[in-house]
Computed example of a mutant assay.
Amino acid sequence: MPVTWMNRPPTPVSRLATLALRLTGWTPVLAPPPGPKFVAAVAPHTSNADFWPGIAWRWATRTPAHWVAKRELFRPPLGWLLRAWGGLPVDRRRTGGNFVDGVVEVIRREAEIMVAVAPEGTRSRTEGWKTGFYYMALKAGVPIGVTVLDWGRKRVGVVAYVTPTGDIDADFRQMAALLEGVRGHTPANMGPVVPLSRETPSVTQP
């Protein structure tokens, strides 16, 4: 039985994507979402090769998965391709140049959305995660979907959800525990699941 978003019926495209994943040894996973919106922390992201199981998972599960970038990147003709791959433009001018607040505005605007963020911010090794994704979820009042690209066990997708509390260290410990044993495509590029910075944002619930 295909794993799909909110038990949506599979389509020919989703069946084909599921078949492609399984034929290449991958298992798509999608823990039942607690609601129609969340921020996905996608990890570990250690190689360009992560793109293909990730985009196949999106098609297979019919999940409203999107990634965000500044609106200037979405000019045609490239913008058409970026949108087809799940890109959403963020107009930072509407939020005083603050990218996190711009994404929060997008989350509040959409009826359902999964905002996918690679918190390492690079395919190279880092000593922690950037925290923008955390504050997007905290400010928007939505959970964080811990989303794995596990090349060791060939699993891709959302394994669990963490509700951000504002205690960033405690919340990161939860995410680290959920990622224990997960192996990236290039293990040498994997870093610890700890926050690189801490903020004290003004949180306005939706």
Rank of each mutant, 00 (worst) to 15 (best):
L81G: 13
K70A: 02
L82N: 02
A65L: 12
W67F: 15
A84S: 15
L88F: 10
W57D: 03
L73P: 01
W59N: 00
W80K: 08
T63V: 15
L82W: 06
R58L: 10
T63C: 14
R75L: 11
R62S: 11
W85S: 08
A60E: 02
R83D: 03
P76T: 10
G87L: 10
R83L: 04
L73S: 02
R62N: 14
R83N: 05
A69F: 06
G87E: 09
H66W: 04
T61G: 05
A84L: 15
A84V: 11
P77S: 08
R58G: 06
A60T: 08
E72G: 01
W57M: 09
F74A: 07
K70N: 02
H66C: 14
P89R: 10
A69L: 06
T61C: 04
T63F: 02
L73H: 12
R83M: 11
R58W: 04
P76I: 11
R83T: 12
T63Q: 03
P64T: 13
P76C: 09
K70I: 04
E72H: 01
P76L: 14
A56F: 13
R83Y: 06
W67I: 03
P64N: 13
R71N: 07
L82C: 05
W85C: 15
A69K: 02
L78A: 15
L82T: 04
A69W: 05
G79D: 04
L82H: 04
P77T: 13
L73N: 13
A65T: 06
A69R: 02
A69S: 13
A60D: 03
L81I: 15
R62P: 01
P64S: 14
R75V: 14
K70D: 02
L88C: 08
P89M: 12
G79M: 03
H66S: 14
W59M: 10
A69V: 03
A69E: 09
R58V: 10
P64M: 14
G79C: 07
R71E: 14
W67P: 01
V68P: 00
E72F: 02
L73R: 06
W57Y: 09
R75T: 14
L81K: 05
L78Q: 09
T61P: 03
R75P: 00
R62K: 15
A56C: 07
T61A: 04
P89V: 12
A69T: 03
W57N: 03
W80T: 12
P64C: 13
P76V: 11
W57C: 05
W80I: 14
P77C: 12
R62A: 07
L78S: 09
E72V: 08
T61Q: 05
W85K: 07
K70E: 02
P64I: 12
G79H: 03
G86S: 11
R71S: 12
W85G: 15
R62E: 10
P64A: 12
W57Q: 05
V68R: 00
G87P: 07
A84Y: 10
W57V: 07
W57P: 01
A65W: 00
F74K: 08
A65N: 01
W67N: 01
P89Q: 10
E72I: 05
H66F: 10
H66I: 06
A69Q: 03
P64R: 11
